[in-house]
Amino acid sequence: MSYRNNRLRTLKSLLYSYYLDFKVIYIVFVSIMAGLVLSKYIFSPAFSSSESGSLDVGFVNGIITSAISMIVVTSNMELFKKFSFPVDRNLLVLSHIIMILVMPLVMLLTSCFSLLVESLLAGIASGTAPVSLFTWAITKENFLVGFITSYILTVCITAVSWAVFAWFYRYKIPAGIILGMFLVALIYSESFRRIFSYLVGYVFYRPVPGILFLRLAAITLVSFALGYVPIKRMEVR
């Protein structure tokens, strides 16, 4: 029992440490969102002929920021910083997985907040315009489906990025060669490109929400398993 309590306490402190790291990533994310909302006012006065893109911008921004943060999180320097007794490899991977699951959710919720702020500003601007057309093109269902799809896709891409960089930092030369070969084949080999496009297309071809979520969840789980291997086998000085 006390062993379990110790593990929980360790996980909690590890997560707190990652939460402090996440603050920097989150500030970058929020700055980009704020910049985009403000730029609409600066470059498109009174939001004339404008469309709200807060949700899409938040989604794309979330994917890029999360994927880049995985490059940092999996680096040797960052991992060694977290290793202090009683943190072990399993707890480290678990905290990474929790981070991968929570970070996109917070980012997407922030984009919802950004949408409301943007709509409020647009509402104020519409009051000053002689003629206005304000359209709310969101329905409960398309918002929920869009939110869940965006979340699962962001988690999936972040998990793939985590697994790739977990391998890359531990086995730089073999991983580098495989990644290089993959990129070269993708650019120069027509048949490889066709196979790769087929596989990506298979995931997204005429999807039904439930099936797509299952496919993406399966890719995420495989990525978690693949990323666990090099971290489990890494040497800690």
């Binding site: 004339s48 404008s50 469309e51 709200s52 519409s126 002689p130 869009g146 799809t149």
Partner: peptide
């Protein structure tokens, strides 16, 4: 004249 226009859109991925 000009018309002020604003559409609150959902996730395009839907």
């Amino acid at each position: 004249g000009d018309m002020w226009h604003y559409t609150v859109g959902t996730f395009t991925i839907a």
